[in-house]
Design a protein around this nucleic acid. Structure first.
Length: 486
RNA sequence: GGCGCCUUGGCGGAGUGGUUACGCACCGGUCUGCAAAACCGUUUACACGGGUUCGAAUCCCGUAGGUGCCUCCA
């Protein structure tokens, strides 16, 4: 069995092999915590959670770092705002009348809570950019000593012309970029693609977040000059200081290919002389209502928005799993409802593990099908995280269960299959489907008795009682089966 | 202006040359004391125009539509 992943570095499907045996180092670009995350943001974390779970299913030990960007990510002109070039954190602070530190803490906590709500595995290292300032300054210093930097009025920049393969990762055409520039770039920059490693605080503005620039980084030895890190620098510094100079896998959004990740590669490899990451995996963007998610359209729903409309985070997780990470998805409530219904159906299959009926003969065909499904799920995921195929496998095997009471041996196979599903897809099918109470079981027996006596009034009354407790009962040729009401 | 991606049935969504994946929805049927569920079945497909091939949703060219990133900063 082998895991294949699409590597942006080579633009091809490659067999994944880590540097060391069964140890995998993984870096995920985390959120900038200046607002709530919306469905599009969350999609990426669900995709990467699936990656982690797939690696684990392949017996790899995963050491994962995910950053939380709490400083230095500047707004661009596509944000729909007039004021561009401002630190997103400062902007959030102004909006809410708080300090940038408060904003970072509030939304950072909300992000971590959201990860739990979606049942995303917590990375071993969740790093805040503001807690890795010394490491970032070390990186700037190393780059400066090797001659890759230059200083201008507003900061210390990386000279991309000194990294000959700069354009390769994203297939950039730098001449075209230059020619296509409609707005004049900062005249002091040497190349259009040069980017700030360390920005100096503006003279006319008091920033909430700033640090003293070490004098040995400044050309004119200006003591006490305050500044803050560039966004790209943060990721390289945090990734390398924890995971080493070469990562096995680096993940992120497709939007990061031409700039953020290109810059990470340039600055990291300029310092180490080694490849920064062997695998780069990028997720496509989710649309909402057929268009890009944007604040002005109000289509960037949060987890709270979904819950207010009666959808759980797991309904959403199922929705995301129905698509492939490399394709554009389209979020609509109609599609979310389809996922919700599918999940509800699955939960009622899961509930069958609590119910046995000894009069049914063991069906070895069914048995084999359930056992093979676990393997087939992992094979689907190993094929570049093909979650739609994994879901198909599950539907196929669930259909074999025929939604009837199981014999004990099927019960065990079903439980094994559910374990695989929960481990790889994180749907918590077992945790969300507890057994009914002894009283409820007794009620079902009484109802069966009433039916045998053709006491329909009593039978219906007991059925209503159970319905009030969220339990439905249906009658099959093999007896009564209970399930959860939606 | 530069670079890229996409176009499969009502809605999603797999599928890289040769048995209408699958899910959700809809309709019909079976079963049932009733109901629900389940099961069975039907109906809607591969944007358009060419080409390659015995054979294309799948490969090539073109057209149309959609969409993303960049274009100060990042």
């Amino acid at each position: 069995m082998s895991l294949k992943l699409h590597n942006t570095l080579t633009k091809s499907l490659e067999e994944f092999t880590p540097q060391n045996d069964n140890q995998v180092s993984l870096y995920t670009c985390g959120p900038t915590v200046y607002n709530y995350l919306h469905v599009g943001n969350w999609a990426a974390y669900i995709y990467w959670d699936t990656l982690v779970r797939t690696l684990i299913a392949n017996d790899y030990n995963v050491e994962r770092v995910m950053n939380i960007t709490d400083v230095g990510h500047l707004t661009g002109e596509n944000e729909g705002d007039a004021d561009t070039g401002e630190d997103k954190m400062q902007k959030g602070a102004r909006r809410e009348g708080k300090t940038a530190w408060d904003v970072a803490e509030f939304y950072g906590d909300d992000f971590l809570k959201g990860m739990k709500r979606l049942n995303l595995i917590t990375p071993q290292h969740i790093t805040k950019a503001t807690e890795y300032i010394p490491q970032q300054l070390d990186l700037v210093r190393a780059l400066k000593e090797k001659g890759f930097t230059y200083q201008i009025d507003d900061g210390i920049y990386f000279d991309t012309s000194k990294f000959p393969t700069y354009a390769d990762f994203a297939g950039l055409d730098l001449d075209a970029l230059r020619a296509g520039a409609r707005v004049e770039m900062n005249q002091q920059k040497r190349n259009v693609s040069d980017f700030a490693l360390w920005k100096f605080s503006p003279a006319d503005e008091q920033r909430d977040m700033e640090w003293e620039t070490p004098s040995n980084l400044i050309d004119n030895d200006e003591v006490g000059k305050m500044g803050f890190p560039g966004w790209h620098l943060e990721c390289s510094a945090m990734a390398m200081s924890i995971l080493g100079e070469t990562l096995d896998i680096h993940t992120g959004g497709i939007d990061h290919i031409p700039v953020h990740h290109t810059n990470e590669i340039a600055q990291s490899e300029s310092v180490t002389g080694k490849r920064f990451s062997n695998f780069w995996i990028h997720n496509n963007h989710l649309k909402s209502g057929g268009t890009k998610i944007s604040k002005s359209l109000g289509n960037g729903y949060t987890l709270d928005d979904l819950e207010e409309r009666g959808y759980t985070p797991f309904d959403y997780r199922m929705f995301i799993l129905q698509g492939h990470y490399s394709n554009e998805g389209n979020f609509t409530f109609e599609n979310l409802t389809a996922a919700k219904n599918r999940l509800h159906h699955w939960r009622n299959i899961a509930a069958l593990r609590h119910q046995t009926h000894d009069t049914i003969e063991s069906d070895s065909d069914k048995e084999v099908s359930l056992r093979a499904a676990s393997q087939a799920i992992i094979e689907a995921l190993n094929d570049n995280l093909n979650t739609p195929e994994a879901l198909r496998v599950i539907d196929e095997s669930f259909a074999r269960v025929e939604n009837q009471p199981l014999t004990a041996i099927h019960q065990q196979s079903l439980n094994d299959l559910l374990e695989t599903i929960d481990d790889t897809l994180g749907l918590q099918l077992r945790d969300s489907t507890p057994d009914i109470t002894d009283e409820q079981k007794q009620t079902i027996l009484e109802r069966q008795q009433a039916r045998e006596n053709k006491d329909w009034a009593l039978s219906d009354k007991l059925r209503d009682e159970l319905a009030d407790e969220g339990i439905a009962v249906r009658d099959t040729t093999h007896g009564s089966v209970w399930e959860y009401l939606s």
